[in-house]
């Protein structure tokens, strides 16, 4: 059995009451993503725990884990840098920005820096098309990102460590 922070436990308790009677399974996806934020990745123990809480089999949770791109079985960095290269961003330098990030961090898609602090992901459209190119670091959006601006952002992350 796993336990989470009091805040998360409170969130989960509330979450399980949001759905109709006997439909705890509905909490699987949100529970996984919130728990991942705290645990760092989707571990086998976490799968079992979510299965227990949502009254489904671990396999049913496992099936879900592989389906959603934001759920990771391996830990990403403390700061997960997501660079969009989809069409709107592509047209205004998104691909170059992503390549710049690779060089700057010395890692590529879904890799983590050696110190485990920063990870990088080339992502699909995240809904910032009109303010492209866009980067999301953890859950924070950054718009109109230039290579210089990205350097500053990454330097800022390194200082924040």
């Amino acid at each position: 059995m796993m336990t989470f922070s009091p805040q998360l436990e409170q969130k989960f308790a509330k979450m399980l009451t949001a759905y109709p009677e006997g439909k705890k399974r509905s909490a699987v996806v949100p529970m996984l993503i919130y728990a991942q934020d705290e645990v760092g990745s989707i571990t086998p123990e976490l799968i079992d725990e979510v299965a227990r809480r949502c009254e489904v089999t671990p396999l049913q949770v496992d099936e879900v884990v592989g389906y959603y791109s934001m759920l990771h079985r391996k830990p990403m960095g403390k700061f997960h840098v997501q660079v969009c290269t989809n069409i709107s961003c592509l047209l205004v330098g998104g691909m170059e920005l992503y390549e710049h990030a690779c060089k700057k961090l010395g890692i590529s898609h879904k890799q983590v820096t050696a110190d485990g602090q920063i990870s990088l992901e080339e992502v699909e459209c995240m809904g910032a098309c009109s303010w492209a190119p866009a980067v999301e670091i953890n859950y924070d959006f950054h718009h109109h990102v230039t290579p210089e601006k990205l350097d500053q952002l990454i330097d800022g992350l390194r200082k924040a460590q």
């Binding site: 439909k23 699987v28 949502c54 959603y68």
Partner: peptide, 22 residues
């Protein structure tokens, strides 16, 4: 209700399956 990264869930019936934890 939070999704977790899947374009397909914008399709209304896929969204419902996702809402049901699948």
């Amino acid at each position: 209700h939070s999704g977790a990264g899947a374009y397909e869930c914008g399709e209304e019936t896929a969204l419902l399956d996702s809402l049901e934890g699948k």
